[in-house]
Design a protein around this nucleic acid. Structure first.
Lengths: 168, 168
DNA sequence: AATAAGTTTCAGAAAATTTTGAAAATTCAA
DNA sequence: TTGAATTTTCAAAATTTTCTGAAACTTATT
């Protein structure tokens, strides 16, 4: 397999996988493209490479920035904006976990709390509903704090290795 | 807030949240409905309650069964099939984690392995691509085994409590 | 074996999401 | 300022996903 073939396969598969977990295909493909690119790229280069429109590139670059997966780079003497992916995959994974926690887990807690505060447990059926809501809250909080502690542990493991590097 | 209102809010929000994480809205709503229902329900009851077609109900009930979140119940003297949700939310959460692991994490490992085995590291650029693929594999394996061990720990905590119950 | 009750399938319709591309807005240089 | 380069926005088009409903299939009853 040649380099370009491997890159294409990676970018294509990454996009396909992403749709299965509710992430926009193009966003993932741009991310994959930037991950594999040693140099930062501008909108025109991404447009040409993935054969997509300027508007699409723009929207998804902003999304990727909001996920903290890529950064804008202003090259001296260049008018155009260049984009560079975070290459440290551990950092990428932590970033994704944090975002998903914020976007997926926190809204559940909010909704459950809202229903809980407004429904009086004055009948057996209401009590049953409240029981389920309470259970969901427990599980969600557990998941939340587990993710949190794994993130923290993982982060300090990285910090440890970083420190070791300086102790050599 | 009255019972029906609370139920509706729960079912509706659950459906909306689900779409944000790549799960079909109807599937989540049927799951929510069954979670809140003390009795098992048949296709006609679900159709009427959520105002959706028979085909849609059938498809999503099968999906929910494949996720291990609901079970078919054959009531004596009844021709129709009834469906009952798993009410133990910890079990539900474990089931979802297992499925997502299988559906989201395992395909990544497969793809990365495939590219890795076919791309020779004979240039610097190829080596760089292989480095990223390797990193992704490391992170994915780490995530996989972390989920695995949390699941296991959580499961045995449950087992522990179950056993305690009998030691009283 | 015929019929009735219930379930599954799937082509086409409807709905939701994504993408395009051109116009508007912004930024920079002279 | 002006105007050229670049980025952003957004209505409409294209695409993808979901849903419907009727026909086909399966299972149970007489």
């Amino acid at each position: 397999m040649e380099l370009q073939e491997a890159k294409d396969k990676f970018i294509h598969t990454w996009g396909t996988l992403a749709t299965q977990w509710g992430i926009n295909r193009t966003m993932s493909q741009i991310h994959a493209l930037l991950l594999l690119s040693p140099k930062s790229l501008n909108a025109d280069q991404i447009m040409e490479d993935l054969k997509i429109s300027r508007g699409n590139v723009n929207m998804n670059l902003r999304d990727l920035m909001s996920w903290g997966l890529i950064n804008k780079q202003l090259l001296p003497g260049e008018r155009k904006e260049y984009f560079l992916a975070e290459k440290d995959i551990w950092k990428v994974a932590r970033q994704i976990a944090k975002e998903r926690k914020r976007r997926e887990i926190e809204p559940i807690i909010e909704t459950m709390d809202e229903i809980k505060s407004q429904l009086k447990p004055d009948t057996d059926e209401k009590k049953e509903v409240l029981k389920i809501i309470d259970d969901i809250n427990k599980v969600t909080n557990f998941t939340n704090s587990t993710v949190q502690s794994v993130l923290k542990a993982e982060e300090s493991w990285l910090i440890n290795n970083f420190l070791k590097l300086f102790n050599q």
